[in-house]
Nucleic acid binder design. Sequence first.
DNA 1: CCAACTGTATTATAGCAGTAATACGGCTCG
DNA 2: CGAGCCGTATTACTGCTATAATACAGTTGG
Lengths: 126, 126
Amino acid sequence: MVSFDSFTLCGGVPIYQQILLYLKRGAVSGAIADGDELPSRRVLSALLGVNPNTVQKAYRLLEEEGLIVSHTGSKSLMSLTAETLSRLRAELLAADTKEAVRAFRQMGLTKEEAVEWIERFWEEED
Amino acid sequence: MVSFDSFTLCGGVPIYQQILLYLKRGAVSGAIADGDELPSRRVLSALLGVNPNTVQKAYRLLEEEGLIVSHTGSKSLMSLTAETLSRLRAELLAADTKEAVRAFRQMGLTKEEAVEWIERFWEEED
DNA sequence: CCAACTGTATTATAGCAGTAATACGGCTCG
DNA sequence: CGAGCCGTATTACTGCTATAATACAGTTGG
């Protein structure tokens, strides 16, 4: 069963997208594996304190992308092939790195200063 | 006069927030200085291809934050004290770095791998 | 001076995100 | 079997983003 213990909602980004990112990044890290059961829509919505429709939207988008499989009556399961994981990893890393580099460059930092900030913040979180 | 030549709109983030970030990051980098003239609301909206009200919202929020001064009939000016710049720099760097580190950690990267990705992407953009 | 610009304000419209309440059909397990 | 889960679907409402069309007051510069 996929755990949402380390999931924390943060403002500014749509909740359904945060759920998408959490599951995709978990898959890339290996914490979430092919065949893992997902919490039901109702259970997860209660756990996160959001509307069931918000979770449903996230799950529906994941299914359209082929990352989960759903059948009426049964729990949804992660569906992760090697090719899917490879594609996901490249997509997410490129997007996040590009955005960070863009921000650092716009603020006039050198590459060395940017790396220093990353290293400084690396230990500070759980 | 503050230039928007290197400004590019991207989807997913409200336009007025992109304008806010562009001006704040420009101030932190030194490319935008205290007393610099800003394009008028009408001129900038035409330049970006967005509605004048969207630019007006960005400028209004900047004025509420004390980063620009506006007087009816005259162009708005950047208003950047040393303390303002110091606060801005700390705020923006912390926010951007924290978000990047969060993404890298959720994907299971080590600190060294994260730094490597930053360095790899550093040169690839203009 | 006065035309053309500036900032500011108002009202209306459309679309999307998120919430809320509800309903229906299928699977599981005691 | 049947109660209680599960996924799925529909409708309605709120708030934010962005657009659109005006209108008015103050400044600037030829």
